[in-house]
């Protein structure tokens, strides 16, 4: 069985990181499917899939921003040439 205290495997790509366009909080992907949110002086760490609070004084953050910055990656995405050609503009 996997050791629950083992360090999670590091990310193999640059972490996803966003500034929330409304609140200004910074959302950053961490290894082990977690997301760190920094808002003013406070921080919180959340599960990147369920959005459940894991640690830190900030106990609630925008769940949709958490799953955008966390959440499963789409294989083969980030193919820059394809996206820059405009074929992968992110629509709603």
């Amino acid at each position: 069985m996997a050791d629950p205290h083992a360090e999670p495997a590091p990310l193999t790509r640059p972490p996803r990181k966003k500034r929330h366009p409304l609140s200004g909080a910074i959302y950053e992907e961490l290894p082990g499917n977690r997301v760190r949110v920094i808002k003013g002086e406070a921080y919180g760490i959340f599960d990147g899939f369920t959005t459940r609070h894991l640690e830190g004084p900030l106990t609630y953050a925008d769940p949709h921003m958490i799953i955008w910055v966390g959440g499963k990656a789409v294989e083969g995405m980030g193919h820059r040439a394809e996206r820059a050609r405009g074929l992968e503009i992110v629509h709603d």
Partner: peptide
């Protein structure tokens, strides 16, 4: 539109 991340 291109979902750019900070620091990239």
């Amino acid at each position: 539109m291109f979902d750019r991340n900070l620091d990239t």
